[in-house]
């Protein structure tokens, strides 16, 4: 809140001075341009197929045994569920991580650059028990795998 208020003041001040260019120069306007690539529609989707459609342009994926999801069978604390995804598929372009029963299923999307191994590990929140889904994009095709995680205390509610 404090930060927000400060930003307002700074913005107002620079507007009053008629110096929007200064605001741009000091980086106040950077967020929008930097994050143009953040897929807002996909992260706003409430269902898994919708999220995949918005993110990867398709929701059909082939179940693959070459994707390994490492996650606990029972997560005591849904606020911190360690998930590791590794794949032996070659030419992986991106790895998406979803929690099927979360209010916002799409948790993370990793775009792999040159040389990156198809391996990511993150800790995620899970609202309730459900599947963790990994979707790997390789050579224009989608492959997926899922793993059920039982959550005893949810991590999304309040």
């Amino acid at each position: 809140m404090q930060i927000n208020r400060k930003r307002r003041i700074v913005l107002k001040g620079s507007l009053a001075a008629g110096a929007l260019s200064i605001a741009a120069g000091t980086g106040l306007l950077i967020p929008r341009s930097v994050l143009a690539s953040w897929p807002e529609a996909a992260f706003g989707a409430k269902k898994v197929p919708e999220a995949l459609q918005a993110l990867l342009g398709g929701s059909d994926s082939e179940t693959s045994a070459d994707i390994k999801i490492k996650a606990p069978d029972i997560a005591e604390n849904g606020a911190v569920v360690p998930v590791t995804i590794a794949s032996s598929i070659s030419g992986v372009e991106s790895i998406s991580l979803l929690a099927a029963n979360n209010p916002v299923p799409l948790v993370a999307n990793y775009k792999l650059g040159e040389g990156a191994e198809p391996f990511v590990s993150t800790r995620i929140k899970m609202g309730k028990s459900g599947d963790v889904i990994a979707v790997v994009k390789a050579g224009g095709k989608l492959y997926s795998a899922n793993k059920g995680v039982k959550v005893t205390i949810g991590g999304c509610g309040g």
């Binding site: 992260f43 650059g113 993150t122 929140k125």
Partner: peptide, 16 residues
Amino acid sequence: VIEAQWSGGVSKNPYL
């Protein structure tokens, strides 16, 4: 090397 796009579904004090 990698670009991660996250939602609020990643845990507090995130690990990558």
